[in-house]
Design a protein around this nucleic acid. Structure first.
Length: 203
DNA sequence: CGCTCGATATTCT
DNA sequence: GAATATCGAGCGA
C-alpha cells in the first residue's frame, strides 16, 4: 500500500486533519529480522495551528519540544504529556503559516490486534485505541519515533491510503483550556473508537 | 451508565 | 513553580 505524498500535508492544517479520517496509521516493528505491522484506520483527529491558535504547542514560538511542527510537513510529532502518555501527531500546514500539526485521537484497529493487546492489555476491545494516549500505547509509539517521515512506507511509523469514510463530523477540541471555540476536531461518527465527551455537529 | 478527581514527569515560565 | 493536546479508579444513580 502506498502513502499520501508530501503535498497531501502541504495544505491548511484543518483540511489535512479532515482528510486524514479514513487513512491508515501504520507502525512497523522490526525484530529478529522480521517485521510486524500494527495498523488502524484513523477515525478522529484534531488540528493545531500557530499564532492563530492559543491551544497549540507552537503558539508561543519554537522550542526544543515543538520543532517538528516548524519543520518539513509529513513528519511524526510525538511528545510526552501528563507524566504518563505519549501523543502522536503529523506535521502539516499551508505555505501561509510557519507551524502546524494534527493530533491522532482514535483508531479502528485492523492489523496486529493481538500484538497491540500485549502492549496494552485491556478487557474491552474498544478501549484498545479509542483515545490519543491509548493508541500510542497499543502501537508502542514513543519519543524515539519523533521526526520520522510519515510519507515513507519504509518508515517505522507512517500513514497509508485507507478507506473513504461515509460521513465526517466536526466538533470543538478536547482537553484544552484555550481557543475552545474552534471546531478543529474531526471524526467518523460511525466508529466506536472515538471519544464521545462532547457534542458534535455534521459538516 | 456518567461525573469528579488524583497520578505523574516533562516542558516552559 | 505552574500547566499539561490523558487515563482510569471510584463514586453515585
Amino acid at each position: 500500500m502506498s502513502c499520501p505524498p508530501r503535498s497531501f500535508y502541504r495544505r491548511s492544517t484543518e483540511m489535512v486533519a479532515r482528510s486524514l479520517i479514513g487513512k491508515k496509521l501504520v507502525r512497523t516493528i522490526r525484530k529478529n529480522g522480521r517485521a510486524f505491522r500494527l495498523a488502524g484506520i484513523i477515525v478522529e483527529t484534531e488540528a493545531y495551528g500557530y499564532r492563530d491558535d492559543a491551544a497549540s504547542h507552537a503558539y508561543a514560538g519554537r522550542t526544543a519540544r515543538n520543532g517538528v511542527m516548524f519543520g518539513d510537513v509529513g513528519r511524526a510529532y510525538v511528545y510526552f504529556t501528563y507524566g504518563n502518555h505519549f501523543c502522536a501527531n503529523v506535521s502539516a500546514r499551508s505555505g501561509r503559516t510557519e507551524a502546524g500539526a494534527i493530533l491522532i485521537r482514535g483508531l479502528n484497529p485492523v492489523e496486529g490486534i493481538e500484538i497491540m493487546r500485549k502492549f496494552r492489555p485491556v478487557d474491552d476491545l474498544i478501549s484498545l485505541t479509542s483515545g490519543p494516549g491509548k493508541l500510542t500505547q497499543a502501537l508502542n509509539i514513543v519519543s524515539a519515533l519523533n521526526g520520522l517521515d510519515m510519507t515513507d512506507p519504509q518508515s517505522e511509523l507512517h500513514i497509508e491510503f485507507g478507506s473513504k469514510p461515509v460521513l465526517i463530523f466536526a466538533a470543538t477540541r478536547v482537553g484544552i483550556t484555550h481557543a475552545t471555540d474552534k471546531e478543529w476536531r474531526f471524526l467518523d461518527p460511525s466508529s466506536p473508537y472515538v471519544s464521545r465527551r462532547i457534542q458534535i455537529k455534521a459538516l
